[in-house]
Design a protein around this nucleic acid. Structure first.
Ligand SMILES: [Zn+2]
Ligand SMILES: [Zn+2]
Ligand SMILES: [Zn+2]
Ligand SMILES: [Zn+2]
Lengths: 140, 140
DNA sequence: GAGTATAGTGTTATAATATAACAAATTTTT
DNA sequence: AAAAATTTGTTATATTATAACACTATACTC
């Protein structure tokens, strides 16, 4: 039985469900306050569920934001092989699925020839919607 | 007068000096406790200096570690165009200077054609020295 | 199916990381 | 020299994350 088919525990389901409902990444303490009605009372319960969900690749941690987002790539069943774009303005995060870029990253070796198990790449910029808003504002 | 030639303030110098002395990335509160003898008393003094040093590219933040490391690339005068390799075992961090990879990252566009201002890439693996130690241990 | 290992839960307390807010001093620009 | 911008020093507090411990549920093995 592999990681993906093994069923999640109660708290893991609650936490995953909440993260998946949100378009934007969510913070641990925001998860906590939103799932208290479901019987999760304290930070460790949230962080344990997060750790497990990250381990099995259902969610990812957005390092530069200390936030958590559901995996948008169906076959992304491992942690630490992630690429995101992050809007500097609205902080929306999109998981990037670009085979050519993935290949470049997978094949990368450092000067010693070291092979890496994983990576995390975050691109920063202004998303389309925020760019349009900025153009709106200069029109006046 | 550009960013690079502008001289640093007293606290900025103290903090940068300490970071540069360390081979490994250092944590903010480790900086604090190590520079108290030089007259830096409180977290905001450290964090302000860090913010400035990051802004001018003298140091970088290692996102997955909440730690700070001196820039090893002389012409890396901007923040957020950084590539690191991180050892899962000893947590040593090396800044990677690979022109081909830089070009790939600089030229990357998402599906909307969005151009990004910057990026941060962290590779995870086992460094040469830790790998050798592991081999040593299996010999017994 | 009893025994045992493994994973998950609930709880309290605390550690580690980071920022808000405000007054004073310093440096730079005009 | 006056004004503006930056840096400093300080206290308090916010935010993010883990340690430790007793208990419960599930899976595995003989
Ligand atoms: Zn994913
Ligand atoms: Zn945006
Ligand atoms: Zn650098
Ligand atoms: Zn190592």
């Amino acid at each position: 039985m592999d990681k993906k088919s093994k069923s999640l525990s109660k708290n893991q389901k609650i936490v995953l469900d909440f993260i998946q409902k949100n378009k934007k990444p969510v913070k641990a303490y925001s998860i906590l306050s939103n799932v208290q009605k479901k019987g999760i009372n304290a930070p460790p319960q949230v962080y344990r569920a997060l750790d497990k969900l990250i381990e099995i690749g259902k969610i990812h941690r957005v390092e530069s934001q200390n936030s958590f987002v559901a995996c948008k790539i169906s076959n992304c069943d491992t942690p630490h092989k992630t690429v995101f774009s992050i809007c500097n303005s609205c902080e929306i995060v999109s998981e990037i699925n670009d085979p050519k870029l993935f290949k470049n990253l997978k094949d990368f070796r450092d000067k010693d020839g070291t092979v890496f198990d994983g990576y995390n790449l975050e691109f920063f910029g202004t998303c389309k919607s925020c760019k349009n808003k900025q153009i709106e504002n200069t029109k006046h």
